[in-house]
């Protein structure tokens, strides 16, 4: 999205999101989080605007944006399905579930399905290791996942 592609409305929204946090110490992370919550991703065109407001170089903002796994520079699919692939979930069969999800969604993890229905991502522990395997569909936590429950989640995503 080129800078000219930003609408007046987007520009206004962006500056509001930035201003809400700009005066906090260490404002960059809260700003990137707010921008991502507001737009669904942090477009490259937002970077110079954020950098200028915080008196940082573009490279610094870009460096932070790319360091953290949470930030997206492209929009995600309509739903986001995160499957835990850390040790405790592996102990309960997570590896097979990942393969099942990749197969049924025809999407390699991490990735977004061709029709934009869903983004499939790994997550490294949701703190649900005692009710493993675990997943998160958008904001919703799911524990005690098995092949049947995963199929139901995928049905929901593809519905």
């Amino acid at each position: 999205m080129p800078a000219e592609g930003m609408t007046e409305l987007d520009r206004e929204k962006l500056s509001q999101l930035i201003e809400a946090h700009a005066d906090r110490p260490g404002a960059l992370l809260p700003i990137l989080q707010a921008v991502q919550a507001g737009f669904g991703h942090v477009a490259d065109t937002f970077v110079p605007v954020i950098a200028e407001r915080l008196n940082l170089s573009r490279a610094e903002v870009h460096g932070v944006l790319t360091f953290y796994h949470d930030f997206r520079r492209q929009p995600a699919g309509r739903r986001v399905l995160k499957l835990c692939r850390a040790e405790a979930c592996q102990a309960m069969g997570a590896v097979d579930l990942l393969a099942q999800a990749e197969h049924r969604l025809a999407t390699a993890m991490p990735g977004t399905r061709a029709d934009g229905a869903v983004t499939l991502e790994p997550v490294y522990c949701l703190g649900l290791c005692s009710v493993a395997p675990a997943a998160m569909l958008d904001g919703r936590l799911v524990g005690r996942l098995d092949a049947g429950r995963l199929d139901a989640l995928i049905d929901e995503v593809l519905a």
């Binding site: 405790a88 102990a91 309960m92 290791c129 005692s130 009710v131 493993a132």
Partner: peptide, 12 residues
Amino acid sequence: IQLAGNVKHGGL
């Protein structure tokens, strides 16, 4: 202590 993974009685 946190009991996790392949356990019958997981928890704290």
